[in-house]
Design a protein around this nucleic acid. Structure first.
Lengths: 109, 109
DNA sequence: AAAATACTTAAGGCATCGCTTGACAATTGG
DNA sequence: CCAATTGTCAAGCGATGCCTTAAGTATTTT
C-alpha cells in the first residue's frame, strides 16, 4: 500500500528512470525514442515507464501505434515540496538550538 | 555502483525511512528513540539508518553507548535541486511550445 | 494482402530489500 | 561486581525489483 510520494521517490531512485525523466524534461518522446540510447531491451524500458507512470511523474497517451510520454510537473513538485518542508523544519530546529546556546552563553557571563 | 543521488532518492522511497527523516527534521535522536514508535525490531531500524547514512541524508555519532542521529541538510538539498532543475527544464520546454504555437497561430491569420 | 513498425504481454532468472530472531558487545547504574 | 540499557552482527527467509527472451497485437506502409 504505497502512496504517491513513496512511488515518486522510489521511481527517482533508479538511474535509468532518472535518465528517462531527464530526457523527458527536454520535451515529450515516444517509447522507442526513449529506449534508443539506453543499453537495455525495449520491454525493460516499458517497465521503467510503467513505474514512472504509476508514480504520477510521467503521463503517456497512445495515438495510432505510438505512445508519447511527457512529464507531469505536478508530481515532481510534490516530491520537491516534501524535501523542502523537511529541510526548512531542520533549519528552524538548528536556529532554535543556536538561540538556546546564545542564551546560555549570555547567562554564563 | 550507485551514486549519492540514487541512494538519496532510494532512501526516501521507503515510508519507514521517510518517517525517520521526518522525526529527525524536528531534531536529533538516539536509535532507541527512533525505533520506539515504529512497528518493527530495533535491528530493522538500524538497517534503515544505515541506508540513510550511506545516502548522506543522515549523520550519526556514538558517545558512550548511545548513537545520536541527525539530518544532513546538504544531502536533502542535493535531491531537491535535482528535481527543481528538471521541473524548470520542463517548464521552459512548455514555454517554447507555447511560443511556437502562438507564432503558428499568427502566421495563419 | 504482405511486410514493417511500434509497442505489449508473459515467463523466468538472479540480485537486492526489508524484516525477523538469536547471539554478542560495550557502557552505565545500583 | 551484577544487571540493565543500548547498540551491533549474522544467518536466513519471503517479497520485490530489474532485466532477459520469446511470442504476441495493433497500426501503418508498400
Amino acid at each position: 500500500m504505497l502512496n504517491q510520494l513513496d512511488r515518486a521517490f522510489q521511481a527517482l531512485g533508479d538511474p535509468t528512470r532518472r535518465t528517462l525523466v531527464e530526457r523527458l524534461a527536454a520535451g515529450p518522446a515516444s517509447v522507442s525514442e526513449l529506449a534508443g540510447p539506453l543499453p537495455m531491451s525495449l520491454p525493460a524500458v516499458m517497465l521503467h515507464l510503467k513505474v514512472l507512470e504509476e508514480s504520477g511523474l510521467v503521463i503517456s497517451e497512445k495515438k495510432g501505434r505510438v505512445r508519447t510520454c511527457r512529464i507531469d510537473p505536478n508530481a515532481l513538485s510534490l516530491a520537491e515540496n516534501w524535501i523542502n518542508a523537511r529541510r526548512r523544519m531542520w533549519e528552524r530546529s538548528l536556529d532554535r538550538l543556536d538561540a538556546f546556546l546564545d542564551e546560555t552563553a549570555k547567562d554564563e557571563r
